[in-house]
Write a protein that binds this DNA or RNA. Structure first.
Lengths: 214, 214
DNA sequence: GATTCGAGTTGACAGCGGTTAACATTTCGA
DNA sequence: TCGAAATGTTAACCGCTGTCAACTCGAATC
């Protein structure tokens, strides 16, 4: 259930009604599973449910969701930084690990990973008090040609895409420059490191960056 | 269920019928829970069950049990050696961790902990192929007065006792000498480090040692 | 505005893992 | 040896989390 909560938070359940289908999709479960979980969580005061509309976190649910997100992202950072997992490998294991981690284990993973502020994908890690600093970033597809930027988050789940992006050097902290764009949601050409690569629009949209003023 | 399997192995289920009560006691669950699990595991070919007698591991069950024991003990070693847990704190967390750990995570914890051969309590860790080297040790209560020995395993579960023993320096690898024994299962006096302590018979019986020839 | 289709909900089922209560068996002592 | 006590088993229940099927609701289209 911690995972449901975390996923709901990630989907923006703090500010809007998240429909069961979307939630289920993100969790990799059937729609009825998500719908019924909404019921359970409503009974526990974690979400408010508007029938046929979706679920939205209550303030209690937000707190718990942040805990879950923190546990998950710290687990991911820990697996990658301490145990040497690749960023494409850590996700599932981090799910299971985040679910069984109590306060103590979370604290220790945090320390062992060097108190990271971002998970390996660049998502910010809530602090122990539930504080969360949202990066001032935007999708790569917002940038104009010529713009320089730094990769902030790589909001991709798919293994193969993650491997590909890592090979290209498109990881958080990487500097890049938009070298070209095709119109009508066409592919984006990006200089990164001393190479260049072409990203389909859908993929480029999942890469969030912080503009560099220069 | 991995935990049931591991516990059954630990209780000697390889060589004897382990009665439900003993199993349940070790798992901290009710007797019916253990009994029913025996049924499930029998259906899966993991144990042979003799009604009202107990359950014994099949060769398949032995393999799986060893996997569970390996995962658990490596998790314990990992928590203590890498994350800085105290040996009295690691057990519960290691249970949960061992349960969710797949091959990959076990491998990585093994490497991160420095390929330990014993868990923090001194219990041997099966290797990845299911090989297990049993130490040639015996309960402290077997020794005669004056005998020197090295602590091999501390087969104690209780938190407070573990803390006490650690304070006394009675941990695996520690050298000791039996300084005195009272008759009729009376307490045992032990020199360890440059101190001395007195252990009740029941506690002393849980401390397994390897004789030193000198 | 009626209809239809997509999406959400609810119900029935399954399996795990826990409980207590009722029943069966084994064992031990009078 | 027989009966009581201790121990093991089974049944019934609960809650979680998953499924599929059937139903219901809302929205979009004609």
């Amino acid at each position: 259930m911690a995972n449901y909560l975390g996923e709901l938070f990630r989907l923006g359940g703090e500010k809007r009604d998240v429909p069961a289908g979307e939630w289920a999709e993100a969790m990799g479960v059937s729609i009825p599973a998500a719908s019924r979980m909404a019921g359970r969580m409503a009974r526990m005061g974690l979400v408010e449910r508007r029938a046929y509309r979706g679920a939205r976190l209550t303030s209690l649910g937000r707190r718990e969701g942040l805990r879950a997100v923190r546990a998950h992202r710290l687990a991911e950072a820990f697996l990658v930084r301490v145990l040497g997992y690749g960023w494409h490998e850590a996700h599932e294991t981090a799910d299971r690990l985040g679910e069984i981690a109590d306060e103590e284990l979370v604290r220790r993973m945090d320390a062992a990973a060097g108190h990271p502020t971002r998970c390996p994908h660049g998502e910010p890690i809530p602090d122990a008090d539930g504080g969360l600093i949202l990066p001032a970033d935007q999708p790569l597809t917002n940038l104009e040609v010529g713009q320089r930027a730094v990769v902030s988050r790589v909001r991709v789940r798919d293994r193969d895409r993650l491997i590909y992006l890592a090979e290209m050097g498109l990881v958080p902290e990487a500097s890049l420059r938009v070298a070209g764009r095709a119109p009508f949601n066409g592919p984006v050409r990006v200089e990164v490191g001393r190479g260049e690569c072409v990203l389909g629009f859908d993929l480029a949209q999942l890469i969030w960056v912080e503009r560099l003023s220069s």
